[in-house]
């Protein structure tokens, strides 16, 4: 049975802050920091936004594009994030209610650092492929946290994308997915801790690069393909630098990764990063385009996907929801004081 993407939706909050502005507060050359990370600005959620509202906005866009799909035919909803508003109480039930998919369905919240969204896509593929559900919804969304003054503060941002996975009327077939997973403690957040910790340079070679290149090479070997066989490639993008470097290591060109590389303008949306990058590619994809996708989640693992866009994308009602280019218009720059207020970094009276 062919399994793939029936629809998708994406959302990024409108507020932005620049590395220069963050660096100004901490006595750091933010401009150089931004240049090193290849991040021009990052998105910031409004005080009334969180993973529930971001996931819902993306999921509603996804459903608006397929008015023929009955939300009651959705059999599972998975929301991957490391910033679920509740420690106990699912995000996924709230999102499912907000798109009218409840109650005859299953749901769960997922966490695997930055790859919980793509893990959700794999779970939906399994349930759809086995015939257990007609449609599955997988969402990757985050309002990620970086400790004040830490290098992460220059990149940790907010956004998310939602995917409707099914076996009929596909706009893109997922030809294959596979994963490369090990126990690698490069980045973590202990229970009850406000901010994550990381292993500095250890997050690079043994973590991000090893897992992405391994999963990507496994995929190309399994499919008998080379980078030349793909029109687009999307890699996890904790900053703009890592995906550019890993693409070069694997033999992909800048032209192949540019459309799916959003981090320079929105920052690192964690679980939202690869789902958003893929959404940006689907916003412009044409029938027959082949897309190579590899996510990365610290801790650590990579999920690779080989995707082919179908003819159906020509009649797909993409215009029923905003494309990412439209979502990313009309942004508002914040200064650090307003950013601190919006991110609950100011101690308020009881």
């Amino acid at each position: 049975m062919e399994v793939g993407i029936v629809s998708y939706g994406a959302y990024v909050p409108r507020y932005r802050i620049t590395p220069e502005e963050i660096g100004r507060v901490w006595g750091v050359n933010g401009k150089a920091m931004g240049k090193g990370l290849f991040i021009n600005q990052k998105s910031v959620p409004s005080p009334d936004e969180d993973v529930v509202t971001i996931a819902t906005e993306a999921a509603r866009g996804m459903m608006a594009r397929v008015p023929e799909v009955n939300p009651e035919d959705i059999g599972c909803v998975y929301v991957g994030s490391e910033s679920h508003p509740y420690a106990v109480k699912p995000t996924s039930t709230i999102v499912a209610e907000a798109i009218g998919a409840t109650p005859a369905m299953t749901a769960a919240d997922l966490e695997f650092a930055c790859k919980a969204g793509t893990a959700g896509i794999q779970m939906c593929m399994g349930l759809v492929g086995s015939g257990m559900v007609k449609y599955g919804v997988a969402i990757g969304a985050d309002t990620s946290q970086g400790a004040p003054g830490d290098a992460l503060e220059y990149s940790a941002s907010a956004g998310g994308a939602a995917y409707l996975i099914g076996s009929e009327d596909l706009i893109a077939v997922i030809n294959k997915t596979l994963s490369f997973t090990t126990d690698t403690p490069d980045f973590w957040r202990r229970e009850g801790q406000e901010y994550p910790s990381h292993g500095g340079r250890f997050t690079g070679e043994p973590a991000y690069f090893r897992h992405i290149t391994s999963a990507a090479r496994m995929m190309m070997e399994a499919q008998g393909t080379t980078p030349d066989d793909y029109d687009y490639a999307v890699f996890h993008q904790p900053n703009g630098k890592f995906p550019t470097r890993v693409a070069a290591q694997l033999g992909f060109t800048n032209e192949q990764i540019t459309q799916g590389l959003l981090t320079p303008e929105i920052g690192n949306t964690y679980s939202g990063a690869v789902p958003l990058g893929l959404a940006s590619v689907l916003d412009v994809a044409k029938p027959g385009d082949r897309i190579f996708v590899t996510s990365y989640g610290s801790g650590a693992g990579s999920d690779a996907f080989d995707i082919t866009v179908t003819d159906r994308i020509s009649s797909y009602k993409r215009e029923k929801a905003k494309t990412l280019a439209q979502v990313m218009e009309n942004t508002v720059q914040l200064d650090y004081a307003k950013y601190a207020l919006y991110k609950n970094k100011i101690l308020m009276p009881e």
């Binding site: 969180d50 529930v52 509202t53 906005e57």
Partner: peptide, 15 residues
């Protein structure tokens, strides 16, 4: 209309 946080019952309460 979009879905947003309206209020909560304090830091340990329902959102």
């Amino acid at each position: 209309a979009v879905l947003r946080r309206i209020s909560d019952d304090g830091p340990s309460g329902v959102i």
